[in-house]
Simulated scan of single mutants.
Amino acid sequence: MAVEIITGHTGKEHVTAEAAGALHAGVIGTGKYVLAGGNQFAAEIVSNNLIKIKSGELVNQGRHMRIPVNSYEEVTIQNGTQKMYRSDLIVMRYKKDTSLQVESAELVVIKGKASSSIQTSVPSYVNGNILSGATQDDFPLYRVSLSGLTITSVTKLFSVSPTIEMLSKRMDDIGKVSTAKLLTEFQCETNMITKTADGMVSLSVYMHTGAIGGNAGTWWTAGTIPEGYRPNSIVYGTGMVCGDGWLNAVPTAFMISNGLLYLYGQNSAATMLVINMTYVAMGSVVA
C-alpha cells in the first residue's frame, strides 16, 4: 500500500526518520539551513589547532542536526606550514550506513592544500541529495584560513534562516511608512519626507520664499535631510523654480550630499520652488 498516515495511531511503530525529514523539507525547504536557535554554531578560536563550535540547530534537506544549548564541539585543525597558506573547511557531515540503516551527523574538518599564494582554494566536499537516498552530504559552516602556523580567520559560510515569527513581523512591516520633514529655515507650503519599510524615500518640497531668487547662479543649501532618510550616495534631480503665480517657471538642479540638500538657482525672480524625488535610504537594500 503506497498511502501512509504518519501522525496517526496505526497500532505499530511506523514513524521513520525519512518521513520526518520529508515533512521538514516540505515545511522549511529542501536546502541547507541554520536555524535561529542556541548560539547558531558560533565559532571560537581556542588555539592554532583547535576551534570551538557552540550550540546551534540546522536542517539539511529535512534532517535536523544540532549541538544542544550549553554544549559545544571542538574540531582540530592540522598544523600549517611555515611560509605557506591553506584553507580548510568545517562541515556538518551527514552519513548513512546502508547495511545498518543508521544515520549520523558529525563536525568534520576537510583539510585544504598548502599554497605559496595567499589566494588559496577551498577543498572539495560531498554535495549529496539526502532526499534521493544519498549516503553522505556535507554542509559547509566555516572556512578556516591559515598563514604559516597561524589561523588568521574563520569565515562563516551560512546565514541564519528567519523564524516564522520574524517573517510575520517583516510582513507586518511591509507597507508601513515613516515620515519626517526637511530641516530648513525657509517657509514651506509642503514639506514631507516619507520612507517605506524597504528603505524607499520620497522627498516632496514646495518652498515659498523670496530667498530663492537671491541665490541665482550658485549652489546653495536649502536644508538638511534627517538621519535615517539620507541616501547611500550623492543623488541628483531636477525641480522647478518660478515667480508668484507660477510665472516664468524654469527647471533647476539639486543634489543631496552628506545629508544636505543643495539647489542651483536659475531664476533671479524666483520666489517658489517645487521638487519631488525618490531614492534609497542609506543602509537599505531594495530587491
Rank of each mutant, 00 (worst) to 15 (best):
K176V: 13
K176F: 10
K176T: 09
V177T: 11
K181N: 04
K181H: 05
L182F: 06
L183E: 07
T184E: 03
Q187I: 01
Q187D: 03
E189M: 05
E189W: 02
T190R: 12
N191M: 00
K195E: 02
M200S: 05
M200D: 01
V201Q: 00
V201C: 07
S202E: 04
S202K: 06
L203R: 00
S204F: 06
S204H: 09
V205M: 08
Y206K: 03
Y206Q: 02
Y206P: 00
M207V: 00
M207Q: 06
T209W: 09
A211D: 10
I212Y: 08
G214Y: 15
G214Q: 13
N215V: 10
A216L: 08
T218I: 11
W219Q: 02
W219S: 03
T221Q: 15
A222S: 08
A222Q: 09
G223Q: 12
G223C: 15
G223W: 15
G223T: 07
T224C: 13
I225N: 10
I225F: 12
E227A: 15
G228T: 10
G228Y: 05
I234E: 12
I234L: 08
V235H: 01
G237L: 10
G237H: 09
G237D: 07
M240W: 06
V241N: 05
C242I: 02
C242S: 14
G243R: 08
D244A: 11
G245F: 07
W246G: 00
N248K: 06
A249P: 11
V250H: 05
P251D: 09
T252Q: 07
A253Q: 12
F254C: 00
F254L: 02
F254V: 00
I256R: 01
S257N: 02
G265N: 04
N267W: 03
S268T: 10
A269R: 00
A270C: 14
A270T: 04
V274H: 13
V274Q: 14
